[in-house]
């Protein structure tokens, strides 16, 4: 019971946190208070939120392992889906206002500008992950689902690269994102090495 209540609380916090940037932007848009360059603000905020949520979703497993609080795993899917939601909004805003719904302009942007190439790639990596986050897909794909969803790390890398390449001079914030991502990847790498060692030991024990 306590566990259930804790999960409910944590999930509520997640929903409020994840929805508030969107609510703030929609509210500001309606009130006309997005500032002198509304589209720049919309683009920046949706992109930043997507990236933060994506990295948070990647942090779930390490935090769970360290804290031993296994319930946290329930947050991974909503975090990933919210990240995809904001990344999609980010894309639509860019396509609608910067490329004024013109596929020719969009294609030229994707091909000519490497930060956009990286951003589009991140979105494309996230798309199948979002589509296969139903319970049905998880059951259907079995072990393959786990392998497929490791691509979330690839999306994270592409997202951070996208941000890094976009920034003109002040790389402090993208560097922070890169550092967080590197630690997450490092943690997973250490873990899988440890897991491999255990496996190796077991198999040699069996032989002996």
């Amino acid at each position: 019971m306590n566990q259930k209540r804790a999960l409910f609380t944590v999930k509520t916090i997640l929903w409020v946190c994840a929805l508030s940037p969107g609510a703030y932007l929609v509210n500001s848009l309606l009130r006309g208070s997005l500032g002198v360059n509304p589209v720049e603000k919309l683009t920046l905020w949706t992109g930043m939120t997507a990236l933060v949520l994506l990295l948070t979703s990647l942090a779930v497993t390490p935090i769970r392992r360290i804290s031993g609080w296994n319930l946290l795993i329930k947050l991974r899917r909503p975090l990933g889906l919210f990240a995809f939601f904001y990344a999609s909004a980010h894309f639509v805003i860019w396509f609608a206002f910067y490329n004024i719904f013109d596929f020719g302009y969009m294609w030229a942007d994707i091909v000519e500008r490497r930060f956009i190439t990286a951003g589009m790639a991140a979105l494309f990596v996230m798309l199948p992950l979002a589509l296969t986050s139903t319970r049905w897909a998880i059951r259907k794909l079995g072990k393959k689902w786990i392998t497929l969803h490791r691509a979330a790390y690839l999306a994270g890398i592409l997202g951070v690269v996208h941000y890094f390449w976009l920034v003109k001079a002040d790389t402090r914030l993208p560097s922070l994102f890169a550092l967080v991502l590197a630690s997450l990847l490092g943690f997973r790498a250490l873990q899988s090495r440890a897991a491999a060692r255990i496996k190796l030991q077991r198999s040699s024990n069996q032989k002996g």
Binding site: N37, P38, V39, I100
Partner: peptide, 9 residues
Amino acid sequence: TRLPGFRKD
């Protein structure tokens, strides 16, 4: 984009 406009047109 001619500010404070929305569209880069």
